[in-house]
Each structure stands twice: as structure tokens, then as C-alpha cells.
Amino acid sequence: MSRRLSPSAWAALAGAAVLLLLPLVVRSKFALHNLILVFLYASLAASWNILGGLAGQHSMGHAAYFGIGAYTSTLLFIRLGISPWIGFLAGVALVAVFALAVSYPAIRLRGPFFTLASIAIVEVLRRVAIHWRSLTEGSVGLTVPFKPGWQWMIWRGKEPYYYLTLLILIGVVALTYGIRRSRVGYYLRAMRADEDAAAVLGVSTTRYKLMALLISAVLTGMLGTIYAQYMYFIEPDSVFSLDLSIELVLLSVIGGLDSVMGPVLGAALVVPLNEFLRGVGSQQLQGLNFFIYGVVLIIVVILMPNGIIPTVRRWWERLNGSRLATAHTKGVAR
């Protein structure tokens, strides 16, 4: 019974298969670019969700890790010629140290205080990055030189980036799925519901919070490197971006916090439309786009507090009655 996969897991596998084969059929650079961005944002949102949805710690400062990852690998590449494949490891290590030193004390604060602290952390990093011109070139930003080659994580065509980001997304989704169906996942969800009640059941809340934080932060930092290598340009305002942090929250809440595919769905709904509008060029249209997302977020909170996927799942279960529950998962986390 625990071995069987749920319907949504099968759907995800089918979707992954389609996506893996897609570049054989679709050649449009624009389409591939859009999908790459969807994969990036979906991975970012899914990584955020490990801490935010699963563990219930709502960080609005995840861009801190994104930026540290991006700047570390890029600086090592530009200044010392170190390959980003190695550079991202350094970035990830730095993110881990940062998360331990700064975010971890903050996460001992409950709820909104942690959220506020995380915002302040990102804002400090952004301003420091702007100010410390000798290191980061400040607001001018850093340009990644175009040196194509597998060893530099730079390619001419879109396809390699497509597969890289898709594989990462599949990896993050699989990791989330694995966590949910393990002791770690159960403990995180229990802590999210009631930390003290979890503690008397043997859950070391500090250890598991730290675990969720490190996993989430490290993944985000790694994605910072990928972003830098794809966009060829980073600057404080785009990587240490409060807006990006908030967008990750938006994606996950709309899609569904307490689910594996929720953040992916959120990204799939939001990102393509946004990119399309950005291509059309109007600032005002982009404003309309995000205005709608803001309104959707409000409506989701009022009507569907669990987000789209868990709500749909519950409707589906109610339609099918207990037959579905006893046949498949018997109440065990999917």
C-alpha cells in the first residue's frame, strides 16, 4: 500500500516524460526559453516550499541564498577562471554557512517575526552588494563571459539549458516527494501544526527546522548559479530581490503549500504569461499581470486557503468517496 503511487504521482511522471521528449519536436527558441524559466521558477518555488509549505516557516527572503549562490560562482568564474561546476559547490557551501549563522537564529523566532527577519536579511545583502563595488561591481552588475563549453556550463543552444533545468526540477520534485513520505516529512508537518505537541512526541524541532532550512537554502543557492549561467548577467536588484522572494511565496501559495506539485503548478500558471507580457514590452501590461496575481492570492487565501492542488484533491476525493482512499493510500501522505 505504501509502495503504490498516487494518481498525481503518475500524472507527474507522465508530464516529465513528455517534457523530456519535447525538444525533439519543439524547436522555437522562444518556447524553450519560456520553459527553461518555468523550470527555474518551479524549482525555486519547490525548494522554498520545503521550508515554507512543509515546515511552515514562511521565509520572504529566499533571494538571499539565490544571490549568494549566483555571486559566488560568478565571481569565482570571472575573477579566478574557476568552472561554475565547481563554483556552485563553493556557492552552496557559503549559503549553508550563511543559513547556519544568520537564518538559523532567526528561525527560532516564530511565525511572522521570522518572515520579517528574512526580509531584512535580503535587504541588507542587496544594499551591501550595491555598496561593495570592489567586490561586486555594485549596481553595474557582473557579466558572465560567453565561453561555450561543457566545462563552463555555457552552451550556444537552448537545449542543454533546457535539460539541465528540467533535470534539476525533476530532482527537486523527487526530493520533496521523498521527504514527504519519510520521517522527516511527517515531523516537519507535525511541527508546522503544533511545535510543542510535536516535541513531546519525540520530535527534535530545532534539528528538523535546521534540516529543512539547509535543504531549502542550498537548493536555492544552486539555482542562483544556474540562473547566472543562463542569463549571463547578474546585478543586486535582480538576484537579491525582495520581489523574487515574494514571487516564490506567491507561486507556492497559489499552487498549494501542502503538496508536492503545487509550486510547479503555480510556476506553470504564472511564469509563461509574465514572460509573454514582458516580451510585448508594456510595463503597464506587466503591472496588470501581477495585479491579477495579487488579487488571485487574496482570493485563494479567502476561498482556498490550502491552494489549488490540495483543494482540488479534496474535491476529487469527495467525489470518489472512500473507495479511492482505501484502495490507494489509506490516508498516508502522497
Binding site: 511527517y186 508537518r189 503544533d194 505537541a197 512526541l201 519525540g202
Partner: peptide, 27 residues
Amino acid sequence: RPFGDMTVLENVMVGAFARTSHLAEAE
């Protein structure tokens, strides 16, 4: 203080995980 978002079985499994780290055994 039940863990409201989790099922009854999942609630008890949280306790069971104090003695094992395997999903099937906890269940």
C-alpha cells in the same frame, strides 16, 4: 492538540516514528 491538517493515521505515525525511521513500520 491534534495535528489538524494531517489524517488520524498520520498523527499517530508521528508518535510511532519515535521508535523507527521506516515508513511501513511506523504505519
